[in-house]
Amino acid sequence: MWPCAFVAKTNPMNLKNYKPILNLVVLVGIVYLTHKLILFLLKIEESTFVYSMETLYLLFLAMSTLVFIIVLKVKERSFDNVGMSFLLATSVKMIFCYLILKPILRINSHDNSLEKVNFFAIFVIFLTIETVLTIRILSKN
């Protein structure tokens, strides 16, 4: 018997259960490239931003992945609590997002308004992706 076949048979974690995380990564990649293309076409210089686009996307991706890990673990134990765990994890994520946003809010300049819009756009995009993927998890059962 091949070692990988043995691991696949004895591994209790089914990789199919973690498909939403793979979907999240693929969607975020597509959205990131689209976002960069839009900034390029509009000739928006992001070098003046407090946080680079890559930093924001990586932070949001890490937080969203954590939300999905929590949701999927709760789903394995108690499907009835998936929605509540999603709401709680998202609320905690919003607190961290506010802490990340604080340095941007402290800068009072006209040039900073574009960065604020950019941050909130990324926040809404990730929230939408998380919500849609969570709805898909809930609708499967």
Rank of each mutant, 00 (worst) to 15 (best):
A8T: 08
K9F: 02
P12K: 15
M13W: 03
M13Q: 07
N14V: 04
N14T: 07
L15M: 12
L15C: 10
N17H: 07
N17D: 12
K19N: 04
L22R: 01
L22A: 11
N23M: 11
N23K: 08
V26H: 00
L27W: 03
G29S: 04
G29V: 07
I30F: 07
V31D: 01
V31H: 00
Y32G: 09
L33W: 03
T34A: 09
T34I: 13
H35P: 01
K36P: 01
L37D: 05
L39T: 03
F40Q: 11
L41V: 12
L42Y: 13
K43I: 14
K43V: 14
I44P: 04
I44N: 09
I44M: 10
E45L: 08
E45S: 10
E46S: 13
E46A: 15
E46R: 04
E46D: 13
S47I: 12
S47M: 11
T48C: 06
F49W: 14
V50Q: 06
S52Q: 10
T55W: 04
L56E: 12
L59Y: 00
F60I: 06
L61E: 05
T65S: 12
I70H: 00
I70L: 06
V71K: 00
V71S: 02
K75R: 10
E76F: 03
E76R: 05
E76P: 00
R77I: 15
R77C: 13
S78E: 14
D80G: 11
N81D: 09
N81L: 13
V82E: 00
V82Q: 01
F86R: 01
F86T: 01
A89P: 01
T90Y: 15
K93H: 14
M94A: 11
M94V: 06
I95R: 02
F96L: 15
C97N: 05
Y98F: 15
L99G: 05
L99I: 08
I100N: 03
I100P: 00
I100C: 09
P103F: 04
I104T: 12
I104L: 14
R106Q: 13
N108C: 08
N108H: 13
N108T: 14
S109Q: 03
H110L: 08
H110R: 08
D111I: 13
D111C: 11
N112G: 07
S113F: 14
E115P: 06
E115G: 07
V117A: 08
F119M: 13
F120C: 10
F120H: 02
I122E: 00
V124T: 11
V124C: 10
V124N: 06
I125D: 05
F126I: 06
F126E: 01
T128C: 08
T128V: 07
I129H: 01
E130W: 00
T131A: 09
V132K: 03
V132F: 06
L133V: 03
T134N: 07
T134L: 10
I135T: 04
R136W: 07
R136E: 09
R136Y: 03
